[in-house]
């Protein structure tokens, strides 16, 4: 017990020091200034006559889009099936490649923090930083237009997403369970199989289904760059200004996404 503490009891208590308060105030000020500046940049290049005209244009387009051309659905079944295949096979490829990458990237399982881990992290970042539409654009020019380009694009895009979430799950595993398996004299592979895998399996299933759900949405537009699926039909209809067909495609995409989201929610609920 030092006497200093007892004699110099502070009279009041404040949540933050005055320096912290100043910093917070400056940050808010900067944010407001940035907003004002951005607003100016935006309005500079805006033609206000067009904006004023917007409601009328929207109504006009809406009128041309209605009613949907329901008979067109017969043309859509095959592209829709292709879209589902692109999403599903792409997800499978992505997950299969992401699992080893995740183990190489996780601090507690990587064989080398100095060399292997940075490489694995680089794979994750490069996969994540490129949108699947751009992956598809590249792949269409490399392996030609069609479903394969779409599948590979979705697969490459998924690696980063799945590997990142999975390696975080691996790093959060309970060390004592792994220690216990190690203490039995198990080999490295057996420690992964018995100590780590059971702990991350729910996360792996959850992440995969979540990514599949996202991939369904992404694969609907891959056709715009020639990578197969329902997007091809969308582009064809847009090119000939067949607005009632576009409406039907929107409806079909919406229905597919709703169903996939429902499936993914059900599956994740069943696992966790």
């Amino acid at each position: 017990m030092s006497t200093d503490n007892t004699s110099a009891t502070p009279k009041e208590w404040q949540h933050r020091t005055s320096k912290q308060r100043l910093i917070i105030w400056v940050c808010w000020l900067a944010l407001v200034a940035l907003t004002v500046y951005c607003w100016q940049v935006m309005t500079e290049s805006t033609i206000w006559a067009f904006v004023a005209d917007a409601p009328r244009q929207a109504a006009d387009l809406g009128a041309r889009m209605m009613p949907p051309k329901w008979s067109y659905i017969n043309v859509l079944w095959v592209p829709l099936w292709h879209t589902l295949n692109i999403a599903t096979l792409g997800t499978l490829i992505g997950v299969a490649l992401a699992v080893p990458v995740a183990f190489l990237a996780a601090r507690n399982t990587t064989p080398s923090r100095a060399i292997v881990r940075p490489i694995a992290l680089f794979i994750i970042v490069s996969s994540r930083s490129i949108n699947s539409l751009i992956w598809a654009l590249l792949l269409v020019s490399i392996i030609g237009p069609g479903i394969l380009a779409g599948i590979v694009a979705i697969g490459l895009r998924s690696i980063g997403f799945v590997a990142k979430l999975l390696y975080e799950a691996i790093e959060e595993t309970d060390i004592t369970q792994i220690e216990a398996i190690t203490a039995t004299g198990a080999s490295r592979a057996q420690v992964v199989n018995y100590g780590i895998l059971p702990q991350i399996l729910p996360a792996l299933y959850g992440i995969s289904v979540f990514r599949w759900d996202i991939n369904i949405r992404e694969s609907t537009i891959l056709g715009l760059v020639g990578a197969g699926g329902i997007g091809l039909q969308l582009q064809a209809s847009l090119n000939v200004l067949a607005w009632p067909q576009v409406t039907l495609i929107f409806i079909v995409i919406l229905a597919t996404v709703v169903v996939s989201e429902w499936v993914s929610a059900k599956v994740r609920h069943a696992i966790i």
Binding site: D174, Q177, A180, I181, A183, T184, G185, A186, Y194, Q199
Partner: peptide, 28 residues
């Protein structure tokens, strides 16, 4: 390590495996 049995605080069982799998992990 195969010759040394270890019993842990907080049990350190692999929670999501069955009791049998946990016991058999002693033979890994």
């Amino acid at each position: 390590r195969r010759r040394i049995g270890m019993i842990f605080q907080e049990y350190a069982l692999v929670e999501r495996l069955t009791v049998m799998e946990n016991v058999l992990s002693g033979r890994l």
